[in-house]
């Protein structure tokens, strides 16, 4: 037993594939990031993992003003996933700048602020304030939140709406602009093209799928808002299909997400054309999952003899 262990250690390959990726002007040490709304601002996870091991963090959705979010209940478990209707509860951009940014700016990973709004002016004003922060290299424009009455998803479900908000923000924001797309559309590729044409540096997809849950016994909806956003492994096939369609349609890098629970799921997104991935709901089941996904991707590349993550991006064998 001892000898066996010793030999396996001796022959273990020590080659490390190059996991670095570039999105817009931002370099990521590896393509694994955490999804907005599932990872707070990172500090909730420091007891469980080393934030410096992942490529980046997408923060909780931030709006120009403080938002209380929707009433409880805001969450319902569903087969292989969950519905949420948090409704962008956050303390507003000024609080972020004064109280959160100073605490997170020294993290050894990229921090991207997820920006939401009800009007184009809101999006622009929020983006302008973030433009002034040295240590925030990119924003993720959330034009796809299904949980707010005004704005949010309404911009993201038409080419004209998406183009209009991206055009306005592009003028006000000089760093890397990632636009998060809604899956609640018939042709996601055309929306991706529309935002690419307006100067987006990258698109991320998918946000949650609009869904609903009912308690048959009480005849009541399980969410205070009746409908909410579906996430988790149940959405993965839809997310993969959309990433594949969008990656074929645009030249800018695609960030893939939706139901990623482990490294194998992540690799499927790279093969479909994603340059980086985000992990969302899976953080709730294993708060250290993102680091395990980094290790698993490394192991996969090693096992298949690839030297770079770029070797598998869009490498679907058809």
């Amino acid at each position: 037993m001892r000898v066996h262990r010793w030999t396996s250690i001796q022959f273990k390959r020590t080659i490390m594939a190059d996991l670095r990726v570039k999105i817009g002007a931002v370099e990521f040490k590896n393509p694994v990031t955490t999804a907005s709304g599932t990872f707070g601002f990172g500090e909730e996870y420091v007891d469980f993992m080393d934030l410096g091991r992942i490529g980046g963090i997408f923060t909780k959705g931030t709006t120009i003003l403080h938002r209380e979010g929707n009433a409880y209940p805001r969450m319902a478990e569903t087969p292989s996933g969950m519905l949420n209707a948090v409704g962008l509860q956050n303390k507003g951009i000024d609080y972020f700048v004064s109280s959160i940014y100073p605490q997170i700016k020294e993290y050894d990973t990229n921090i991207m602020v997820n920006v939401s709004g009800s009007t184009i002016e809101d999006y622009v004003a929020t983006a302008e304030k973030i433009n002034a922060l040295d240590k925030i290299p990119a924003i993720e424009l959330n034009i796809s939140c299904p949980n707010v009455k005004q704005g949010g998803m309404t911009f993201g479900v038409s080419c004209a709406g998406a183009a209009e908000v991206v055009k306005a923000v592009r003028k006000a924001y000089s760093k890397t602009l990632i636009v998060k797309l809604s899956p609640n559309v018939t042709d996601i590729a055309s929306i991706a093209k529309a935002v690419e044409d307006e100067g987006a540096d990258s698109v991320s997809l998918i946000n949650t799928l609009l869904g609903m849950a009912i308690d048959a016994e009480t005849r009541k909806p399980l969410l205070s808002t009746v409908t909410g956003g579906l996430s988790g492994p149940c959405v993965k096939p839809v997310a993969l299909r959309m990433v594949w369609q969008v990656a074929k349609a645009v030249k800018i890098p695609v960030i893939g997400l939706g139901g990623i629970m482990n490294a194998t799921d992540a690799i499927e997104f790279f093969l479909a054309g994603a340059t980086a991935i985000q992990i969302g709901t899976a953080n709730f089941i294993d708060p250290a999952v993102s680091v395990k996904v980094v290790d698993g991707i490394n192991e996969y590349l090693d096992r298949h003899g690839y030297s770079s993550i770029y070797d598998i991006i869009g490498a679907l064998d058809m």
Partner: peptide, 10 residues
């Protein structure tokens, strides 16, 4: 959902 203050569901 998370139990650690990250998701704001509770």
């Amino acid at each position: 959902a998370c139990g650690i203050g990250a998701c704001l569901c509770c």
